[in-house]
Design a protein around this nucleic acid. Structure first.
Length: 457
RNA sequence: CACCCUAUCGUCCAGUGGCCUAGGACAGCGGCCUUUCAAGCCGCGAACACGGGUUCGAAUCCCGUUAGGGUGGCCA
């Protein structure tokens, strides 16, 4: 009565089988991630199958969001659309002949009957035990047709119903473990009936808990953070999102939050997955993203930043790679998302940078600001080029402030706004050192005029 | 309505009979530092849903209640 594991070790083959809706849901992404982790851990295959039953229109476009999302997360599939494989086609819309064949087998076995033109599967009416890797053994009593009606597997128009094609595909593709959302748990006994009627041994099942909103409601398309695209567009690092998704229902058990995906592959086990639904905490994902950005290697950080700088039209190539890396290094531990990159770096690459109205009003137009900028410029002009470094600049500011009996901040703030147009940004001395003496002096000199000209809202 | 799953701080996760006056993280609050900050550092508040058992002993096991989620489609 149970779908017990076959005694002979079969290769691990798992699949992610989304329907192409035009976007990749975080819940789906996590299901894909867990499948991928399990496959990688076991040295098996991760397969992508597009369940586009009776949705022939725009399939390619709609499926693209899924490909993009999975690739972005780093989840490469071993078989499926665009990469091929021996078990294709990987679109249900192209597997009609296969379904027909199995339909005939069921018909020959006396498992089917017609109902108003639709085809139904006659349930054996037994108690079916699902032995789930996450949920344990669960007995479903299917003996009552009133509560468990025979499922339809084909519509009068010839199109197929999910339960049937899903089972046929998993069987044909030799899927060893079906790892899917818990919303399918109650359907699993029906699927097992189908496998048996088809003379097949059911795969192992692992139903993972669902991802809900913070308030416990079901996450819908419109909820913030429900689409993977929102993370791509929001300036998240894929490794941060993947890491966060791992932590929803699974944990390394040692209170670590930041953990490399490569390490998760090593220690991931389906049996350790929580059985409880998880609420999605966008704040924590955001925080984790900041942690990743602050600690990635300079090379990786540059790779993450460049698309954003390109999109903003920044010409960052003029001063060379060392300059670029110095600039990026100065903001790396400060920004929380890649979205911030253009605004935080634009002034490093052009003299025609915008001035923040509020910063101008509050700092540059403050009483005495112009005088201080003038004093500062005079002192910095005397500083040798070679000492235009963090350590060389700091004493100049301090000495100047001390001489006037004011806090160093009195010079720091106007200087920051003068050279960057903003009140927030990288550490000031580092920022000045990267810009270099010439540009700093020029900007200090130009600031009063710019402040006067700037439109304040 | 029936069946299934679940039930530890606001949220995520740890805890699998004694190490728990329950630990970590995010968020919140307070303080410190400071050259801005959505930075850093320190600290505080915050939970075992409820009721019965079992046991020398229960967050951990059992039963019930309640709550949340899922399924019951000719959606996937």
């Amino acid at each position: 009565m149970e779908n017990s594991p076959s005694s002979s070790p079969s290769p691990v083959r798992v699949r992610f089988a989304p329907s192409p809706t035009g976007f990749l849901h975080v819940g789906g992404a996590r299901t894909a991630l867990f499948n991928w982790l399990f496959a990688r851990h076991a040295g098996g295959k991760f397969i992508l199958r597009v369940e586009d039953t009776d949705k022939a229109r725009n399939t390619d476009e709609a499926a693209q969001a899924i490909y993009d999302g999975l690739r972005w997360l780093g989840l490469k599939w071993d078989e499926g659309p665009q990469v091929g494989g021996e078990f294709g086609p990987y679109f249900q819309s192209e597997r009609d002949a296969i379904y027909e064949r199995h339909l005939e087998r069921l018909r020959a076995g006396g498992h089917l009957y017609e109902d108003n033109g639709a085809i139904r599967f006659r349930s054996p009416r037994e108690t079916v035990v699902v032995d789930d890797l996450v949920c344990g053994k669960i007995a479903f009593d299917l003996t009552n047709p009133g509560t468990h009606p025979d499922m339809t597997i084909r519509r009068p128009d010839g199109s197929w119903i999910f339960h049937f094609v899903n089972v046929v595909d998993d069987m044909e593709m030799e899927i060893s473990h079906v790892i899917r959302g818990e919303d399918h748990l109650s359907n699993t006994p029906k699927h097992i009936e189908l496998y048996r009627a088809l003379g097949a041994t059911p795969p192992r099942f692992a139903h993972i808990p669902l991802i809900l909103n913070r308030d416990g409601s079901k996450m819908s398309k419109r909820d913030a953070g429900s689409s993977i695209a929102s993370y791509i567009e929001g300036g998240y690092a894929p490794e941060a999102v993947a890491n966060y998704l791992c932590l929803l229902g699974w944990s390394p058990k040692d209170n670590r939050e930041k953990i490399d995906l490569a390490e998760v592959v090593q220690i991931f086990e389906l049996e350790k997955i929580n059985r409880r639904n998880a609420a999605f905490d966008l704040d924590k994902c955001f925080w984790l993203n900041g942690q990743y950005i602050a600690t990635v290697t300079p090379g990786r950080f540059r790779t993450l930043c460049l698309p954003w700088m390109d999109r903003a039209g920044l010409d960052y190539s003029g001063r060379g790679e060392a300059y670029l890396d110095a600039v990026l290094g100065s903001i790396k531990e400060k920004i929380k998302t890649l979205r911030d990159v253009p605004a935080w770096t634009a002034f490093f690459f052009t003299d025609d940078f915008p001035f923040d109205a509020e910063a101008v009003q509050k700092t540059l137009r403050a009483p005495g600001a112009n005088e201080r900028l003038g004093e500062l410029r005079a002192r910095l002009a005397e500083l040798p080029e070679a000492e235009f470094t963090h350590d060389g600049l700091e004493p100049v500011f301090k000495a100047l402030a001390a001489a006037h009996g004011v806090k160093t901040a009195a010079y720091i703030h106007p200087a920051r706004v003068a050279v960057s147009g903003r009140s927030v940004g990288p550490s000031l001395y580092h920022m000045l050192a990267i810009l270099g003496k010439e540009r700093v002096l020029a900007r200090l000199a130009a600031a009063p005029e710019k402040a006067a000209a700037a439109t304040v809202v």
